[in-house]
Simulated scan of single mutants.
Amino acid sequence: MKKTIIICIAAFQLLSCNSKKSQEEDNTVSIDSVSTNNEIDPIRVFEGTLPCADCNGIQTVLKVNIVDNNFELTSIYEGKSPEKKIVEKGNLNTEKGLDKDKDGTIYILNWDKPQTEQIYYGYYSNNPEKLYRLDRDKKIIKSQLHYFLELNE
């Protein structure tokens, strides 16, 4: 009788260990598939040259950290003597909805400062790699000039 109980306990422990290991392996597989397929890098870098009224263009790099809700915006005014470089860091907030795209996203740079110091960029949900500079009303600037940055992968 004691041998039967010991064998049952041993079998139960063995099965529970295998069951636990199997669950851990399953979790690892699902975590790996999520991280490689569905996870977005928390730091996104957009680059491009924006139009400039009194220079050759504004070489712009925008780094957004969507986890920590902050940004770094670097602007170099090309063709100025000497070239003017401005680096701005601050807090970031997001809003849903860009034009008629309810799933589009708007980045509000310096959202915690007065509206006159806020800067707006946004992208459509079907093309998150193209980030448009927005006007004070959070609308895309309608122009033949290129008011957008592209995701640097």
Rank of each mutant, 00 (worst) to 15 (best):
V34P: 00
V34F: 15
S35K: 13
S35G: 04
T36F: 14
N37I: 10
N37F: 10
N37S: 15
N38I: 11
N38W: 14
E39I: 12
E39M: 13
E39Q: 12
I40Q: 08
D41S: 10
D41R: 06
D41Y: 05
P42Q: 08
P42F: 10
R44H: 03
R44A: 12
V45I: 15
V45Y: 06
E47T: 13
E47G: 02
G48C: 05
G48Y: 07
G48Q: 09
T49A: 07
T49K: 09
T49W: 01
L50C: 08
L50D: 10
C52H: 12
A53E: 10
A53S: 14
D54F: 03
N56C: 00
N56Q: 08
G57F: 00
G57R: 02
Q59I: 01
Q59A: 14
Q59P: 01
Q59C: 02
T60R: 08
T60P: 14
V61D: 09
L62F: 05
K63G: 00
K63V: 09
V64F: 08
V64E: 06
N65Y: 04
I66L: 15
I66E: 13
I66N: 11
V67D: 06
V67Y: 11
V67E: 12
D68N: 14
N69P: 03
N70A: 07
T74Y: 00
T74A: 01
S75A: 12
S75E: 15
S75Y: 00
I76F: 00
I76E: 13
I76T: 15
Y77A: 07
Y77S: 13
Y77D: 05
E78V: 08
E78Y: 00
E78I: 11
G79L: 06
G79T: 11
K80Q: 14
K80P: 03
K80R: 15
S81W: 11
S81H: 08
P82K: 03
P82H: 09
P82V: 05
E83N: 13
E83R: 09
K84F: 15
I86E: 15
I86D: 14
